Amino acid sequence: MFDIHSHIIYHIDGGSHDLEESLELIRQDVEQGAHAIIATPHYYVQYPTDPARIRAKLATIEEANASALDVRLYAGNEVLWFDSMTERLQSGEILTLADSHYTLIEFYPEESYQTILRAIRNVRNAGYRPIIAHAERFKAIQEHGLAEVRDLGAYVQLSTEPLSHKGLSGLFDRETKFIQKALRNQEADFLGTDMHRVDRRPPVLRDAIDWIERNLDRDYADAVLQGNAEAILRDEEIY
């Protein structure tokens, strides 16, 4: 699997504490089936992250992991939407995914549907390809579905962890049902663990891979697990 959403870079955001934890998160991800990972530290308008610092720390992680695990690592940001986001993308202050035109965007959980639609239009009009991070978490998208945001040109990333919480009630139950429906309807494009730390939100993906391989059309399963993410590296539109 190609994991496009992670917080494996230490001392940047609320993710990994140190280099050793970064390496342990990567090891766990690889053991469960990841072959490539995009590091996406948070970018908030009030707390911007420095692209040069992200790249330098990722290079340190790659050097430390050089002979240990067979995995490809790439840089990016997960951006909490704000009105001048496109200007900061264009100036290079925000990292796109693997230096492509794809950008990973999140919203406040209770963000209005109209704001989400406006964000997609703005990012598209600026020449970038928005990916909605962990789309299953947003109330407005749960209520309105994914058809309209996809028609506007947004791509959809779903989280792997809820597919490992089958049979539970509450938050994960709702998210699991949303994710399963989106995948069965072929309305998702990418997967991500959104891993942060070993003791809090570690990578959980093996059950998700198994569920996808059992329940989905083979070509679509291959696309959502790997192929679509490879298109990010080529900076190509998926559809």
Rank of each mutant, 00 (worst) to 15 (best):
residue 1 M to D: 06
residue 3 D to Y: 07
residue 3 D to L: 10
residue 4 I to P: 00
residue 6 S to I: 13
residue 8 I to C: 00
residue 9 I to A: 02
residue 16 S to A: 15
residue 21 E to A: 10
residue 22 S to C: 04
residue 22 S to F: 02
residue 23 L to V: 13
residue 25 L to Y: 06
residue 32 Q to H: 11
residue 36 A to L: 02
residue 38 I to G: 00
residue 40 T to M: 01
residue 41 P to T: 09
residue 43 Y to T: 14
residue 44 Y to V: 11
residue 45 V to S: 12
residue 47 Y to P: 00
residue 50 D to R: 13
residue 53 R to S: 05
residue 58 L to M: 07
residue 61 I to D: 07
residue 71 V to T: 14
residue 71 V to L: 08
residue 74 Y to F: 15
residue 75 A to N: 06
residue 76 G to V: 03
residue 81 W to S: 01
residue 87 E to W: 03
residue 89 L to Y: 12
residue 93 E to C: 03
residue 96 T to D: 04
residue 97 L to C: 13
residue 103 T to R: 03
residue 103 T to K: 00
residue 104 L to N: 05
residue 104 L to I: 13
residue 107 F to A: 05
residue 109 P to R: 11
residue 111 E to R: 02
residue 112 S to K: 06
residue 119 A to R: 05
residue 120 I to H: 00
residue 123 V to A: 04
residue 124 R to E: 11
residue 125 N to D: 14
residue 134 H to W: 00
residue 134 H to A: 08
residue 134 H to F: 02
residue 135 A to E: 05
residue 138 F to T: 10
residue 138 F to M: 08
residue 141 I to S: 02
residue 144 H to Y: 12
residue 147 A to E: 11
residue 149 V to C: 07
residue 150 R to W: 06
residue 150 R to T: 07
residue 151 D to H: 11
residue 155 Y to Q: 04
residue 165 H to L: 13
residue 169 S to I: 15
residue 172 F to M: 12
residue 172 F to P: 00
residue 174 R to P: 02
residue 175 E to H: 14
residue 176 T to Q: 12
residue 176 T to A: 11
residue 178 F to Q: 03
residue 184 R to T: 12
residue 184 R to E: 14
residue 185 N to C: 14
residue 186 Q to D: 04
residue 192 G to F: 03
residue 196 H to E: 02
residue 197 R to H: 15
residue 199 D to H: 05
residue 199 D to Q: 05
residue 200 R to Y: 14
residue 201 R to C: 09
residue 202 P to V: 14
residue 205 L to R: 08
residue 211 W to E: 08
residue 215 N to D: 11
residue 220 Y to H: 02
residue 224 V to Q: 10
residue 227 G to P: 01
residue 227 G to Y: 04
residue 230 E to P: 03
residue 230 E to D: 09
residue 231 A to T: 15
residue 232 I to N: 04
residue 233 L to M: 10
residue 238 I to S: 07
